[in-house]
């Protein structure tokens, strides 16, 4: 019967693996090759130029600005998102105390769950257009209109080079929180009730429950969240494209690698150089994911 089982497994795996190879692996491999050429994207005769594109990257000011921004994104975006999402999901699931032997959330938690998740179902382009209006730099913007009512001068959310990137991070956090609330809620509901009961009997308050019980038992989920958010921090293309001044400005203060790759390929017709940036991005993402999984590895607690 062994033979039949393999055929069964192969039958199921063949289609997805083929699709994956065709649409994911093969473009990646081709990008590695194109990165070593000076292909302009419109002809069939790219010249092999070795590592020239990569040495060019080393003193490309805009490239390094983008890399720095990914650094900021990586530090700020996942951290803020996870803290907010943890806080909300704790409120929604566990902070209401015990009811009939079960932990419950605060009053109205079902409604909040829907509200938190709402931004997640909006297409990122819609979010971008929405925040264009919210962040508009004069008093016709939503935030600046409100600030104006209390006598504060309009803030140039997206036009001040010092805060433009943070403003865009704000949008990313706003959009991501809902998903991670749901993810953490699922994680929390899988924690056995008797652990909480026992802790509560021993007189643990909400604070102790959260830091001593919930958080450690949620470690695996948080690790996943961190990797997901980190990878999202290497993207940010659409929001920067829609929101920032002149796509990545002012003065390169919001530019990100996917945007520069797009610009280099489609505006400057340097597909080879753009692919080299893509390869660099690929290694950054891989390194980040591997590092995160390795550094945050802890002993798994079996319930």
């Amino acid at each position: 019967m062994q033979h039949g089982r393999y055929r069964f497994i192969v039958g199921f795996l063949a289609a997805p693996v083929l699709l994956y190879v065709v649409f994911v692996i093969s473009p990646y491999v081709q990008a590695f090759y194109i990165a070593l050429t000076n292909w302009k994207g419109v002809s069939a005769n790219p010249q092999f130029i070795g590592l020239e594109n990569f040495s060019r990257l080393l003193d490309d000011e805009v490239f390094w600005a983008a890399v720095r921004h990914h650094g900021v994104l990586l530090l700020v975006m996942p951290l803020v998102t996870i803290v907010i999402a943890l806080f909300f999901s704790f409120l929604l699931n566990l902070s209401g105390g015990q009811k009939g032997g079960r932990m419950s959330g605060i009053w109205g938690s079902k409604v909040y769950r829907v509200i938190f998740f709402l931004p997640q179902v909006l297409a990122v382009a819609i979010v971008g257009v929405l925040f264009q209006t919210i962040y508009r730099p004069d008093e016709t913007g939503v935030i600046n209109g409100l600030l104006g009512k209390v006598g504060i001068d309009p803030v140039g959310w997206l036009i001040d080079p010092d805060i433009a990137l943070l403003a865009i991070i704000g949008v990313m956090v706003w959009q991501a929180v809902g998903f991670y609330v749901v993810l953490f809620s699922a994680g929390m509901s899988s924690i056995p009730k008797d652990v909480f009961e026992a802790a509560a009997l021993d007189g643990a308050g909400r604070y102790t429950l959260f830091f001593k019980i919930t958080l450690p038992l949620l470690w695996d989920t948080m690790q996943v969240a961190w990797v997901y958010l980190g990878i999202a921090a290497f993207d940010a293309f659409a929001l920067v494209q829609v929101l920032s001044v002149d796509r990545g400005g002012p003065d390169n203060s919001t530019t990100v690698l996917p945007l520069e790759i797009w610009r280099t390929a489609f505006n400057f017709s340097k597909f080879g150089y753009a692919s080299a940036m893509g390869v660099a991005l690929f290694f950054m993402t891989i390194t980040f994911a591997a590092l995160t999984l390795r550094v945050t590895r802890r002993e798994r607690i079996e319930f």
Partner: peptide, 8 residues
């Protein structure tokens, strides 16, 4: 020119 024109 008002600074806000950069964002329009």
């Amino acid at each position: 020119m008002d600074k806000s024109f950069e964002g329009l």
